[in-house]
Design a protein around this nucleic acid. Structure first.
Lengths: 341, 341
DNA sequence: TTGTAAGCGTTATCAA
DNA sequence: TTGATAACGCTTACAA
């Protein structure tokens, strides 16, 4: 068994064509006669040729690589998004170099440097760590997903709509007080729209509401403790009132649900809960949780579609840079399960 | 702003050294005088040089790419494993090209062909789809994780030990009947060891046991329906008996738990449940679920350590191929929570 | 429709 | 310690 690989030169020698013709066979086969195409095809089989894209990259500059920076894969939202992005390989053919940044700015910068060293053609950024201004400065097609996006293209869920959907559902459930728990965040974060959508609906309908902007912590244990405190607080402030609670995501909604069930043996009629994301936990909870569902496959598809067009534009002889970043918005889907009436 | 990139040639011209010397500055700086190192360092800054690894790959053949084929990222086990594998970048510097195969053999073959075209140096395979014999035939360092591994190196959880741990815990809980639910699988699958470990403990201790080897389906709905049937069946076969149930994973354990709670309002004393994996759901369930915990970070680390050594060996002038594949085994950790006494 | 020759940005081999 | 030169495998003018 020989170690050396078959190259265009070998095929050329074997078929008595030039390397150029072999290259053309792969990139522009119609420019060869059918007969010669066949000859080369036979030679490929005879020599057991395996393509080598590194030479091609060097010569053409096209790597077909896209870099992805995610915060982590621990959260289902990110892993499912990555899953769906990877699946676009079938459509666009781009290969993905994946890094998990874990919220460390310098680490992410290092990853980006590494990605650039491999001549990636574009990036998809799910991580919120680096500013869109910095990302834009790399002068490379970039699409952000659900993160601050002032200077870069992006695809986001319509968070405002999601907030409205949640508030409207709780309104229909005849709650006395509508409560939204979320992290404190800058107004430039897409998720900020949820807070606005929620409060706008409450105000429009003169519904009493309570906005609890607080950090619930990073571990399950912290989440649990913080949410238990919130429950105590609500029961003091709103005894006997029917509470409609919009949690920042399904994981936290599930924690709340379990706390209530552990306390009362069941979900009391005085509580309605709605989550966000439609992650598996919302369906798999003891009481299936109503939620504002993000359309992850659609978001991933749109992100790659957008990135692909940016990368195509850049390959043209006369690329026209965008005057303004493009922002796509995907409507969430309200999913009614058993934690709301 | 110029588009063209700074190359070694530019640096050489700027510093009046040769390209070779510039290359040496990066690969073997000690062979230059400190003074000249400084000159070049200054030039890099002055010219804003960005390294380009494509040329290096072409010239050296070292891509520092590792291919990963996972079944999907939907299941927490896989996404967390990927997370931990990606994290080894900090240690080994290998970049990861990730594909999700979704159980389609031909698709996975296509992915592997693509990976080989990029001269990857090795592969980590979590997908069970292709036989280890086929994987070995690619003549590339390969490490399998928790899959059939006759002809390839691998890292697996000690499933036999896991099965014993589960059975022992249920024994301590004084169950009248020990039940293990799992899929029917070939004996070459690592998970088969769980069944053996479980039954061996039962036999050794003369404990009555019930092995239910059945396909629970691929969706939550199917899981739920199938497990509800199992519950009915058990209650008919073992009325009034204390049932100790070892489920194939935490997701299924949680489904069982929820079915019981929905039926009885709480987890009845006549049921003990233990899952497998220690995935978040086991901790986040209404009643925290006891489980046999897989040490995912350890497995990922060992897999890359093993793969790295295989890849290093292969780079030597006189590589010595392994006579036998290396199989590493990682001990699982029993985690006792509230579904067992 | 096909071929020639010059790159692409590094590293490797020799020689000095 | 440094340099000249030839790879590495493919693409791309330009020519025929």
């Amino acid at each position: 068994m020989k170690k050396q690989k078959v190259t265009f030169a070998d095929i050329a020698a074997y078929t008595h064509f030039s390397k150029t013709t072999i290259s053309r066979y792969f990139n522009n086969p119609d420019s060869l006669t059918l007969e010669n195409q066949q000859k080369i095809a036979d030679a490929l089989v005879a020599l057991d040729y395996k393509e080598n894209k590194v030479g091609r990259i060097l010569a053409s500059g096209r790597t077909e690589f896209v870099g992805i920076i995610i915060p982590n894969l621990y959260m289902h939202y990110y892993s499912e998004m990555l899953n769906q992005i990877l699946a676009t390989y079938e459509t666009y053919g781009y290969k993905f170099l994946v890094f998990a940044g874990n919220d460390m700015a310098d680490v992410e910068r290092k990853y980006i440097r590494e990605l650039l060293a491999y001549n990636i053609e574009g990036m998809i950024i799910l991580s919120p760590t680096l500013s869109s201004e910095e990302l834009a400065s790399y002068n490379l097609p970039v699409v952000g997903i659900e993160r601050e996006d002032q200077y870069i293209c992006s695809v986001n869920t319509d968070n405002y709509m999601g907030g409205m959907q949640a508030a409207s559902l709780l309104k229909k459930s005849c709650c006395d007080i509508l409560i939204h728990v979320n992290a404190r965040m800058p107004e430039t974060t897409p998720a900020f729209g949820r807070i606005q959508g929620f409060t706008d609906i409450c105000r429009e309908n003169n519904l009493p509401y309570d906005l609890t902007l607080t950090d619930l912590g990073n571990t399950f244990r912290e989440n649990r403790e913080n949410i238990m405190e919130l429950v105590d607080c609500w029961e003091q402030k709103y005894p006997d009132k029917k509470k409609g609670i919009f949690m920042p995501n399904d994981t936290h909604a599930n924690v709340l649900l379990n706390i209530l069930i552990q306390k009362y043996g069941k979900l009391p009629d005085t509580y309605q809960i709605i989550g966000f994301d439609n992650s598996p936990i919302s369906e798999e909870a003891v009481v299936p949780i109503s939620t504002v569902g993000q359309q992850i496959p659609v978001i991933a598809g749109e992100a790659m579609s957008l990135l692909s067009s940016l990368m195509d534009e850049r390959k043209k002889r006369k690329p026209v840079p965008l005057k303004e970043p493009i922002h796509k918005v995907i409507t969430p889907i309200l999913i009614r399960r058993s934690t709301t009436k």
